[in-house]
Design a protein around this nucleic acid. Structure first.
Length: 443
RNA sequence: UCCUCGAUAGCUCAGCGGUAGAGCAACCGGCUGUUAACCGGUGGGUCGCAGGUUCGAAUCCUGCUCGGGGAGCCA
């Protein structure tokens, strides 16, 4: 192998193995290329914890069994130096992953400077300033691996159930929901806004492809400063033509259950590392409990909350409502005044709409918001007028009601909130590789 | 925007009117099974910024800046 800059010891060419695959090579000598996570040494034995992106493994270097220059490298290599090693795979009860390596060779690709993130505790501000390095650590690695699983499982379920992925634009001419504050930018002299939802475009696509989903980033210029909010987050938004509210909820409970099941199946090790109580996830399967907004208000009153019918629930209310359930719970049929303009009114009860929020258990709050959409042209025009929306900006959206309109429903699931629930994490900001927070856009 | 807590070594913090401290990290030394390894030693500071009170301010007061937690808004 090629030496890069520093004193290197030739490592024999061997099949390079991913740490995650070590169990398939017990007894064999393999090559690993990665980085030094941590090192402990005691004079004539050194323990190198190496990570390669797929996992972590400890390599044991015994002075008496290695050439002096090889052991010297093991003894002096610094935290987060990049290195290639060779070693014999050995099952060992003392190893955290069940396997470790008896080191036979080492090559330092690049010796790292003094690494800022020690293995001791750090504050949030410091870690967020070093997010580009922080994601190398085991807990962050595990959480982001679960994120990857959530996304893969979500898209996998949708694709295998006939949903077509359509990509909605990020630069949009006007507000989708008209409530949140938008990021404004210049579009060759015209005002443009960063998308806060792909839903309206998903509705158009549903009329073209039947079952569709949009997956993309979402931007909210709200000055939110809580552990549940990001300025930029990712949302997956399925939309189905001819689906009513009940169809919508059935899709959601199957969809969410599949995602949880995939994480339990494929990311069990990461969830365990994060200290997640797996039994709380193992019960997640259809059907999910359903309560109406009216019932939820009664529940709040019974729990001692002062709450006026017609208001939207705040975070403490959501926690209180979900506390009675060990599965995600649908809260259905909110007051029309508390919800977006496009939601279908309940027949015979125009003061509420056919919508459902899905509240995750264990106090994680809303992870999905969904509804049946208004398909009647006249009603949609009336609602847009009530919400003081400029009809010319939404003429294309009204076209969907002019040319072959059908009842349809959809929902949006926040990826980071879902990952926070599944991993049992305190903060949503660690559920995305590079969080955009209030007053923080670095790195 | 509001409420609340905070800012002292590279990091995490203690000190709360009287000479600037600890652990970790770094560096040097020791140790053949370590799991945030351990043991000994060395170097390391504009105590967030500005003003005020005082013989004397990291410490008390005022303002500002930055950050944590929460609310509202939402996924």
């Amino acid at each position: 192998m090629r030496a890069l800059g520093f004193v290197c010891v030739e490592v024999r060419q061997l099949q390079v193995t991913r740490i995650a695959d070590l169990s398939r090579h017990e007894g064999e000598e393999v090559g690993i290329q990665g980085w030094l996570y941590n090192k402990r040494s005691s004079g004539s034995i050194s323990f190198l914890i190496i990570r390669d992106g797929s996992g972590f493994v400890q390599a044991v270097a015994v002075k008496a069994e290695l050439a002096p220059e090889v052991y010297e490298l093991c003894d002096t290599v610094t935290q987060e130096s990049s290195l290639r090693i060779t070693g014999i795979v050995r099952r060992d009860a003392r190893a955290s992953g069940g396997y470790e390596l008896t080191l036979t060779g080492i090559e330092i690709v690049a010796l790292a400077q003094e690494y800022p993130i020690s293995l001791k505790e750090h504050g949030a501000d410091f870690l967020l300033d070093h997010r580009h390095l922080w994601i190398r650590g085991p807990r962050q690695h595990a959480a982001l691996m679960v994120r990857n699983e959530v996304i893969a499982a979500a898209e996998g379920w949708l694709r295998s159930n006939g949903f077509v992925k359509v990509d909605a634009p990020i630069l949009t001419p006007a507000a989708c929901e008209g409530t949140s504050t938008l990021f404004e930018t210049d579009y060759f002299g015209e005002k443009a806004y960063l998308s806060q939802s792909g839903q309206l475009y998903a509705e158009a696509a549903a009329m073209a492809f039947g079952k569709v989903y949009v997956y993309g980033p979402t931007f909210r210029a709200e000055k939110s400063k809580t552990r549940r909010h990001l300025i930029e987050f990712w949302m997956i938004e399925p939309e189905v033509a001819y689906a009513d509210q009940d169809d919508n909820m059935v899709i959601q409970e199957q969809f969410v259950s599949h995602i949880v099941k995939s994480c339990l199946q494929n990311r069990r090790q990461e969830l365990t590392l994060l200290g997640r109580d797996l039994s709380a996830l193992e019960v997640i399967e259809p059907p999910f409990p359903r309560v109406t907004y009216d019932e939820a208000v009664d529940m709040l009153h019974a729990a001692g909350f002062e709450f006026t019918w017609g208001d939207d629930f705040g975070a403490p209310h959501e926690v209180a409502i979900s506390q009675g359930f060990n599965k995600p719970v649908f809260v259905m049929n909110y007051p029309t005044q508390a919800k977006a303009f496009y939601m279908q009114p309940m027949p015979g009860r125009p003061e509420v709409v056919k919508c459902a929020d899905l509240l995750a258990p264990e106090g994680y709050g809303e992870i999905i918001g969904g509804s049946e959409r208004i398909h009647d042209l006249a009603l949609m025009e009336q609602r847009m007028k009530e919400h003081k929306m400029a009809p010319e900006a939404y003429d294309w959206y009204l076209d969907l009601r002019r040319y072959g309109t059908v009842p349809h429903s959809g929902f949006g699931m926040g990826i980071e909130r879902t990952v926070a629930w599944i991993t049992g994490s305190e903060h949503i900001r660690e559920m995305i590789p590079f969080p955009r927070l209030l007053n923080r856009i670095y790195p």
